[in-house]
Nucleic acid binder design. Structure first.
Length: 201
DNA sequence: ACCCAGGTGGCCC
DNA sequence: GGGCCACATGGG
């Protein structure tokens, strides 16, 4: 996987949808769902905004948590229709801090999802300090007891305002984590060489 | 049969 | 502010 295009998509709205759907599941399970949504003409805010909030979408099901995810998808679609003239790009444009707060106010959009949308959807300079990132920072001693905020602050302070850097660093860290910092069995032979707070090895 | 996956929100103290 | 727990499905 080339770090340059870690998050492939046909547009900003697709990145937002992908960011929501990939929560607590694998990207491999999200891709077919994104394709199905496109096939049904649902990869755009307008039609999604018209669905009733309580109607779970069958297409979402393979990604898990499908009831909440469907509701959250409709919420963000309505928000874009009501507040951004139906243009997803506008939700990622302008003052970075304000846009991030706006994203965080949406149901189901936490720090990682908001920052993924900003960084990979809008190329905004916000580092995504996902759990994989924290694992590597723990294990390597870069930040032995860091949380999301401190890990993000560390990177953004060291490499200010550099979206390209954040994308590459994120992609690399996730690949390292997937290879070496998963469950106990996979940690055998880890070259990082320190006691792992997650596995105890 | 278990553990895990590119989190978030609600509750409790 | 930190520590649980539900949320749901499919793959290893």
């Amino acid at each position: 996987m080339d770090v340059e295009d870690w998050w492939p998509s046909d547009g900003q709205f697709e990145v937002m949808v992908g960011a929501l759907l990939t929560q607590q599941t694998t990207w491999e399970k999200v891709v077919p769902v994104l394709d199905a949504l496109k096939e049904k003409g649902l990869m755009t805010p307008l039609p999604l905004s018209l669905y009733p909030l309580d109607e779970p979408q069958a297409v979402i099901q393979p990604t898990g948590f499908y009831r909440q995810k469907a509701r959250r998808l409709i919420h963000i679609s309505r928000h874009i229709m009501d507040r951004h003239e139906g243009n997803p790009a506008k939700l990622l444009l302008g003052n970075l801090t304000d846009r991030r707060q706006e994203l965080l106010s949406l149901p189901g959009v936490g720090p990682e999802t908001a920052d993924s949308m900003l960084l990979f959807g809008g190329a905004r300079p916000k580092f995504v300090a996902a759990s994989y990132v924290l694992r590597v920072f723990h294990r390597t001693g870069v930040l032995p007891d860091g949380d999301y905020r401190s890990a993000q602050a560390l990177v953004e302070t060291r490499y200010p305002d550099n979206a390209h850097c954040y994308r590459q660093l994120y992609a690399m860290l996730v690949q390292v984590a997937k290879r070496y910092c998963r469950s106990r069995p996979r940690c055998e032979g880890c070259p990082l060489g320190q006691e792992c707070p997650f596995t105890g090895l």
